[in-house]
Design a protein around this nucleic acid. Structure first.
Lengths: 203, 203
DNA sequence: AGAATCTTGGAACGATCGTTCCGAGATGAG
DNA sequence: CTCATCTCGGAACGATCGTTCCAAGATTCT
């Protein structure tokens, strides 16, 4: 039997996710990954193939570890609009504070990158978008069941709207948008979808 | 008196805008700019300084040439919601078809790039965002004057919402989102802001 | 025409890019 | 203990990166 790996590939992947997430694939060199993980180029290439493969693998891990649990929580939360509000509160908080503050969303960032139409990357982007859209849709269905939204509301388009809004939050948070502003915006979106009435404008 | 430039700097800048817009700054080399413009490295550096300065100058030119005229048109259009609808129709069309199809918005892309907190870049991003927000605000004021939106609607947050929605459109269009889907989404947003009623869902 | 001054093309710089290769070391089966 | 097999550290590859430099050419003023 051969030798066995002297490191944990998932831990290495997590470090790679952090690098690619914050700075993007193009400006992150293999040397950076080597330095951040401590292992050698040989092990890196033997395990992950090329830099592009490493990036895609890291992107997939981001979706699995960061996005999907959040989508699932949203889809399974039966409260309707409050569930969506809670989703956005968590989103804004994690985008504007904590260890990933101003990193945005790795998938949103990937949309703006040059590898967006690499076949593997594209699949991750679309899968992520579908997941977010479907989670929003489920939450909106719960909202309709509780009469929190007008009966005529097109849930598909509304789910898409909220998904695109999330992308907007992700983008602007990278430029340092204030959490309070982002929250006010998402709150207004939910009020609008609920068919009003709107709360009094703060003085 | 010295020699004079043998080229038009603005024309060169337009080529640079195209390169940086489509592929981003990190993956566009000076060699690419040299090839696309036909002039030499010497002239490039003598005129624009460094690559970073060239990128920022190109980014500013993008805002001046592409974004600002659209903002101005939106702000000056007095029709209210139909003006915003027209804005989104033009946006989606230019993002999904024509010579810049699937390029997204250069400023949106810059949000996701690694230079987002370079001081000069940040200023362009914030200026762009303010311009879009204010144009939306002006259009919403017109809408309120024409009783197209509920009186209680917070115009600031609503303007922010529409601006973030535009960023979402920009992002998703880069991944090949269908124009019809994006249009349905923005239409739903406007219907929601108008306080309903919603049109019948297509069968 | 001649001098002064800037532009231009192209070679060249060191640094870094992603990737490969090889000898040495570690591991588990027989 | 030995052998086969994989891993690992690190040197090294050619290519490309952004940038600089210089001689030659072009232009305008006197």
């Amino acid at each position: 039997m051969p030798d066995v790996k002297h490191f944990d590939p998932d831990a290495v992947l997590d470090r790679a996710v952090a690098l690619f997430w914050e700075r993007g694939a193009a400006t992150t060199g293999i040397a950076d990954v080597v330095e951040a993980t401590g292992l050698s180029r040989s092990s890196l290439y033997a395990t992950f193939g090329s830099k592009q493969e490493l990036y895609v693998t890291a992107l997939r891990r981001y979706v699995d570890e960061q996005s999907r649990p959040v989508f699932r929580r949203l889809a399974d939360d039966g409260r309707g609009l409050p569930a969506i509000a809670a989703f956005f509160e968590r989103l804004v908080r994690s985008r504007c504070s904590g260890e990933h503050a101003r990193w945005g969303c790795m998938v949103s960032n990937a949309h703006a990158g040059p590898d967006r139409d690499d076949l593997d990357v594209r699949q991750v982007l679309d899968t992520h978008h579908d997941g977010l859209r479907q989670a929003m849709h489920a939450a909106l269905q719960a909202a309709r069941a509780r009469s929190q939204v007008p009966v005529g509301l097109d849930l598909d388009s509304a789910a898409d709207l909220l998904a695109l809004l999330a992308y907007g939050v992700n983008l602007r948070s990278r430029a340092g948008a204030a959490a309070a502003d982002l929250l006010a915006t998402t709150t207004t979106a939910l009020h609008a979808l609920s068919g009003g009435p709107y709360p009094a404008t703060s003085p």
